[in-house]
Amino acid sequence: MTFGLACCAIEMMCTSMARFDIARFGAEVFRPSPRQADLMIVSGTVTKKMAPTLVTLYEQMPSPKWVIAMGNCAISGGPFVFEGQYNLVEGVDLLVPVDVYVPGCPPRPEGLLEGLMKLEEKITGTRRFPVPEPKW
């Protein structure tokens, strides 16, 4: 399901485009209606004005359903947390249960793909690709 909020939405689009091609994993069908969605990718800042809408949309999705918090804003408020802020929900996990967090500002498309892999690992218990060894 498309739930593009801010900057991260562009990277989310990039993920489905030719170079990264999320379709390889059969996940390219971004349904516009929440009724037909399995996964909500919250890509961007959640403001207090947006929060009720987000919760409604989540509740409209049929279970089993999952949520990926994409980007620092969705995880914790990211760069927009400061003393006296008045319009920000500091983390989407305050509103809906989150399965996978993908950090970055914005995360690279590879990051989102890795998030999907993680989600798959969580559901099926098996990992599709070996985890790359860190080079350092």
Partner: peptide, 10 residues
């Protein structure tokens, strides 16, 4: 205002 991120206040 669904994405008002308080830049001017920041």
């Amino acid at each position: 205002g669904y994405l008002h991120r308080m830049h001017e206040k920041m």
